[in-house]
Amino acid sequence: MGIYVKKAVWLLICKIKGIIYIPIDIVRFLYGLIRLGSKKDKLFPIVGIIPIIGNNRMEAGNIDRHYYLQDIYMAQKVMKNQPSVHYDIGSRVDGFISHLLCNRVPVTMIDIRPLPISIDGLSFIEGDATDLSQFEDSSIESLSTLHAVEHFGLSRYGDKADAFASYKAMKAVQRVIKRGGFLYFSVPISYRNGIIYNSHRVFKPTYILDQFSEMKLISFAYIHDYKVNEFLGDQAVEVIKQNHFNEYDCGMFVFEKK
């Protein structure tokens, strides 16, 4: 529980700091408004006001230490294998999926939530990834699910509470990938399995290997402190078996169906 207590305390401190800065931010906002208004620029007059405060204390760019690095790393893995079409379950459209589309990789995305827009090169299937019943056995050559399976069955995204949802999804994914096909899979990893309700699960990497017993591990990598640590083949398996992991990191697995 240590890392989650620290995160809760950190969020509380951030909220308190934000409240403390509100009077300063309001003064700063009003000063800027008065200064601009006094110039009476005819080409760009003030036609509306939307108060946005606090951005002056933000860093240059908002980079999520897991998703940003994960999406680049896994997109490079997919593009290296050059699939004729790639299927994805629940990964980020504005990250991983967009990387593939920029490199002209056609993508079919599967999600329990609707996608209300149309994007060139992207097909969409609204469905339940815990069974993938619309797909035949051994029918897909390239499939990914990044930072998604850990949320299944926790009622977070409109799905029903199901303690076995992540297990079902992994078995369904393994079923639909054809022999010689590739799976690109990521979840939060830890030295133990567990549920942090209703946010996510964490998985022991050995558990992931056990669920994909019909597949060969090509590579394993994990993200810690904005660094990708990659291991290949037998070395990857050995690192996973040692189980020297932190309480929460991002684990990335590339499998090939035997």
Rank of each mutant, 00 (worst) to 15 (best):
G2S: 15
K6W: 03
A8H: 02
L12A: 15
G18S: 08
I20H: 00
P23C: 05
I26N: 02
I26C: 12
G32T: 10
G32M: 09
G32F: 08
R35E: 10
L36H: 02
K42Y: 01
K42C: 01
K42L: 06
P45W: 02
I50Q: 08
I52V: 13
I53P: 00
G54V: 09
N55A: 14
N55V: 14
N55T: 12
N56R: 12
R57F: 15
R57L: 13
H66T: 06
Y68M: 02
D71Y: 03
M74I: 10
Q76G: 12
K77E: 13
M79A: 06
D88L: 06
G90Y: 03
F96A: 03
H99M: 11
H99S: 11
H99K: 14
N103P: 04
V105M: 08
P106K: 05
V107D: 00
D111W: 06
I119T: 10
L122P: 04
F124P: 03
I125F: 06
I125S: 05
D131G: 05
L132M: 13
S133R: 12
Q134S: 13
Q134K: 12
F135Y: 12
E136F: 14
D137V: 13
L146P: 03
A148Y: 09
E150D: 04
F152D: 02
L154V: 04
R156P: 00
R156A: 11
Y157E: 05
D159A: 03
D159F: 04
K160H: 08
D162N: 14
M170L: 03
V173G: 02
Q174N: 13
R175M: 04
V176L: 04
G180S: 07
G181T: 07
F185L: 13
I189Y: 05
I189P: 02
Y191P: 01
R201D: 02
F203D: 00
T206C: 12
Y207M: 06
Y207N: 01
I218P: 01
S219K: 12
S219M: 15
F220P: 03
I223R: 00
H224K: 11
D225A: 10
K227I: 13
E230C: 08
G233N: 09
V237T: 09
E238P: 00
E238I: 08
V239Q: 15
K241R: 15
F245T: 06
F245G: 06
E247G: 05
M252V: 10
K257I: 00
K258H: 13
